Amino acid sequence: MRLLLVEDDDHVAAALSAVLARHGFVVAHARSGEEALRALVPEPDAFGVVLLDLGLPDQDGYEVCGKIRKRTSTPVIMVTARADVRSRIHGLNLGADDYVVKPYDTGELLARIHAVSRRSVHDESVTPAEDGLRLGPVRIELPTRQVSVDGSAVQLTRKEFDLLALLAQRPGVVFRREQIISEVWRTSWEGTGRTLEVHVASLRSKLRMPALIETVRGVGYRLVAPAA
């Protein structure tokens, strides 16, 4: 896999590039936001993942993330020393797929790279429906926010639909609890965790498919695409 590393510190970049190369990645190094954006001009989807440092010399990494997201759907992992919750939420809301705080464990970073890259791979269990998605007997119509199972309409609340639509776009991929809460509830309040559990239980019940949403203990949830 080709990987774009956006890091202005040459020593950090060299050490990380060596580790990534040993694990089979082909690394392109950009030292500034402008270099990173130029690297994406010829082929916006040439890289499997972008590792983006926020402390760049020419422009803020958040700004760069926003520009990258306008050009490509390539997964972006922000790598930064900014550890506060507000910064993480801001990064995720701008379109980052994950957020890693320095200093980090290399093994964890590699696992996160593989995780976000899997999310961008097309899953044949999901087939496009007109203006929506079809997962086996489940049809999700995004513009009208309607859901049906085997042709029968299922009434969902707004948040239930948002949760299902989020998981359904990347079946098989584990979404971290904090990521779901950030994207569906637009908050980082820890108390929302219980609300998430209630919504998952309600979805399983209303869709009459308890195995559709799998709990990954200690991490979050993933959607298991049913057979057609």
Rank of each mutant, 00 (worst) to 15 (best):
residue 24 G to W: 07
residue 24 G to R: 04
residue 156 L to K: 07
residue 201 A to M: 05
residue 124 E to A: 15
residue 2 R to Q: 14
residue 192 T to C: 11
residue 135 L to K: 05
residue 202 S to A: 15
residue 196 L to N: 11
residue 57 P to M: 01
residue 148 S to L: 03
residue 224 V to P: 00
residue 158 R to N: 02
residue 62 Y to S: 06
residue 141 E to H: 15
residue 62 Y to G: 10
residue 40 L to W: 09
residue 148 S to C: 02
residue 26 V to I: 06
residue 206 K to Q: 05
residue 129 A to Q: 06
residue 27 V to P: 09
residue 224 V to H: 07
residue 97 D to Q: 13
residue 176 R to V: 03
residue 52 L to D: 12
residue 39 A to G: 02
residue 73 S to Q: 15
residue 167 L to V: 08
residue 77 I to A: 02
residue 156 L to V: 06
residue 168 A to W: 04
residue 51 L to M: 08
residue 3 L to C: 09
residue 204 R to G: 12
residue 123 D to L: 04
residue 188 S to K: 05
residue 2 R to V: 02
residue 85 V to Q: 14
residue 218 G to V: 02
residue 78 M to Y: 00
residue 132 G to V: 06
residue 79 V to T: 05
residue 65 C to P: 11
residue 68 I to V: 15
residue 64 V to H: 09
residue 172 G to N: 05
residue 186 R to S: 12
residue 223 L to S: 08
residue 150 D to A: 14
residue 69 R to I: 06
residue 204 R to A: 03
residue 221 Y to S: 07
residue 115 A to S: 14
residue 101 V to Y: 11
residue 95 G to K: 09
residue 191 G to K: 07
residue 139 R to V: 15
residue 61 G to T: 10
residue 166 L to W: 09
residue 166 L to A: 08
residue 93 N to E: 15
residue 162 D to K: 05
residue 200 V to G: 04
residue 139 R to S: 12
residue 5 L to D: 07
residue 228 A to Y: 06
residue 52 L to C: 08
residue 193 G to F: 03
residue 167 L to F: 09
residue 132 G to A: 06
residue 116 V to N: 07
residue 90 H to F: 11
residue 79 V to E: 04
residue 95 G to H: 09
residue 80 T to L: 04
residue 145 R to S: 13
residue 113 I to R: 01
residue 216 V to H: 03
residue 11 H to N: 12
residue 133 L to H: 09
residue 21 A to E: 14
residue 76 V to Y: 06
residue 83 A to C: 00
residue 15 A to T: 11
residue 225 A to C: 10
residue 28 A to N: 06
residue 121 V to P: 00
residue 141 E to V: 14
residue 159 K to Y: 12
residue 147 V to H: 05
residue 171 P to M: 02
residue 177 R to I: 14
residue 21 A to Y: 00
residue 51 L to G: 12
residue 196 L to H: 11
residue 169 Q to T: 13
residue 223 L to W: 05
residue 152 S to L: 10
residue 128 P to C: 03
residue 43 E to M: 02
residue 201 A to P: 04
residue 19 V to G: 00
residue 225 A to N: 11
residue 10 D to L: 12
residue 46 A to E: 10
residue 10 D to K: 11
residue 173 V to W: 10
residue 47 F to R: 12
residue 126 V to R: 14
residue 228 A to W: 12
residue 194 R to T: 10
residue 222 R to P: 07
residue 52 L to I: 08
residue 93 N to W: 14
residue 16 L to M: 06
residue 200 V to A: 04
residue 169 Q to L: 04
residue 183 E to A: 13
residue 198 V to C: 00
residue 51 L to C: 10
residue 4 L to A: 03
residue 146 Q to W: 08
residue 159 K to E: 12
residue 117 S to Q: 15
residue 71 R to S: 13
residue 226 P to W: 05
residue 151 G to W: 01
residue 193 G to S: 10
residue 175 F to L: 08
residue 106 T to E: 11
residue 122 H to T: 13
residue 145 R to N: 01
residue 43 E to G: 00
residue 64 V to C: 09
residue 19 V to L: 15
residue 123 D to I: 03
residue 145 R to M: 13
residue 111 A to K: 11
residue 197 E to Q: 14
residue 168 A to C: 03
residue 192 T to R: 15
residue 220 G to Y: 05
residue 12 V to S: 15
residue 152 S to N: 13
residue 187 T to C: 10
residue 158 R to L: 14
